[in-house]
Every structure is written in C-alpha cells, then in structure tokens.
Amino acid sequence: MWIQDAHYLEITLRLLLATLLGGLVGLEREQSNRPAGFRTHILVCVGSALIMLISIYGFEEYIKERSQYGYVVADPARLAAQVVSGIGFLGAGTILVHGFAIRGLTTAASLWVVAGIGLALGAGFYFGAILSTGLVLLSLVVLNRFESAVLHKSYFHRLVLKMEDQPGKLGEIATKLGEQNVNIRKLSIEEASQTDPDTVRLVLNIRIPNTVSMAILVDQLRSLDGVKEVSIDK
C-alpha cells in the first residue's frame, strides 16, 4: 500500500484544517470585496498542505525500496519550498493599479501567509498554523478597523468633482491639489449622467495636511474653469 493506514486520519485532519483556516482568512477578504476571496484562499491553503503532505508521505514506498540497497536521504522541505516562490505569481495577480493608488497588496500578502499556513498544517505544525491564522485575522479585521477609525479619520477624505470632460483638466486639478500638499491616494472617473456625456464625475480619496483648510481647498477647486460642483466627505 502506498500510504500506511495510520496516516489516512492524519492526512484528512490536516486537509480539513487547511480548508477551515484558509476559508476564515478568505472570508474576511470576500467581505472586503477583494480580488482573491473565500474560495481562492481555501484553494491556496489546501494546495499548499497537499504539497507538504506529498513531500512527507508521497515517497514512502520509494524510500522504503531504495533503503534496501543503502542509506537514503529524504528532504520533505524540498518540494514544499517551491510553494513559497510560486505563490508570488498568484499574489501578483491580485495587485491592481487604480489611478494614483495601488490596491491588492494586503490580499497578496494574505495569500502568501495562507500558503505558509497550509504548509504548516501539511507538516503537522498545528499550533503555529492556528496561531498564525489568529494573528492574520487580528491584523485584517481588528487592526484594519483601528487604522480606519484612528489613523485615517482625521486625514483622509473623499473628494467628488462634477466637471466638464476637457483635455488636461485632470492634470490641472492634480496640480492644484499638489500646490496644497494634498496627497491623492485613489482616483476614479465615471460619467456623471447618460444625458450629459460631456460631463464626468471625478472621485478622489485624498489626504489633507492639518495646515490646509478644507473650505479654502473646495473654493479653489470650484474656481477652476469647467468645474461645476465640488463636495468633500470625511
């Protein structure tokens, strides 16, 4: 028999735990509407655990046969090590560029960590896998709320402009914001309405220094040619 009967229960436990722990991390990413969500994280974690299990148990019969002719050196980490480098290609696919902002770095990092959790489960390192999952969820859920509530509350705002669709208008607005040391974190452009194709709606996530007055900034933007409406939310 290729795998000893005593190993089947252990293999089942490790793969089920990989499904559970990977799914917990993926569920948070799914709720945050990220590119890689619930199923992707499960697949990465289970796949990593499976590769680790193959490294441990997949060559038992070969090692047993070869050991009859001499000493055989087995390295279970050799096959699993390819997961660490290979997961980078999948993580890169979740990184997206939106205007001046880059999104997906956290999701790429969570995929990389989930791959590590899967390898740990495949190797039977349950304590490290469970503890790592708890720390990842703490970072993604609790610390994310802390960051939004404490670090971003006083500095980051959502700026919405309704303006005419003219060449160079975006650069003019960016220049005006740059003069006030306003940092553009994210930008999106969409049609203001189907009935008025010459008007666009510009949405920017910006960071405003404490020395800049929001009221003055809004007035300066309203004074630009082609800008019809300006609103800002905290």
Rank of each mutant, 00 (worst) to 15 (best):
K64A: 15
K162Y: 00
M1E: 05
N205D: 10
V142R: 09
I56H: 12
H98A: 03
I117D: 06
L221N: 00
I63T: 15
L143N: 10
E65S: 00
H41F: 06
D198W: 10
G116Q: 15
T199I: 06
T94C: 10
V150D: 01
H152I: 12
A36L: 03
V200H: 05
G122N: 02
L21T: 12
V83K: 02
D165W: 05
T12K: 02
Q166T: 07
Q166L: 08
S132A: 13
L13A: 12
S148F: 11
S213G: 08
L43K: 09
R158G: 00
K228Q: 08
H157D: 00
R185A: 13
L24R: 13
N33S: 00
A36Q: 01
L13R: 14
I216E: 12
W2A: 04
L15R: 01
G26F: 02
L170M: 01
D219S: 00
M163P: 01
L9I: 05
A81F: 08
E190K: 12
Q4V: 14
R34D: 00
A92N: 06
Y69G: 03
S213K: 08
H157Y: 09
P76L: 15
A174P: 12
N181A: 13
T195D: 06
L138R: 15
M163C: 04
G178C: 08
D225G: 01
G104C: 08
S85D: 10
Y126L: 14
V212F: 07
I216M: 01
S148N: 15
L137V: 11
Y57S: 11
L53A: 09
I117K: 03
A80S: 09
N181M: 11
Y71S: 15
E172N: 05
E30K: 06
M1Q: 08
T133R: 14
L137E: 07
V230Q: 00
G128H: 14
G124A: 13
W112N: 04
A115L: 07
A80W: 06
L138F: 15
G116A: 15
H98Y: 08
G88H: 06
V46W: 01
F89C: 04
L53M: 12
N33R: 04
L90T: 02
L43I: 13
Y8H: 07
V200K: 09
G70N: 01
G26N: 02
A192Q: 07
A215Q: 03
L16T: 11
Q180C: 03
Y57Q: 10
G70A: 05
E164V: 08
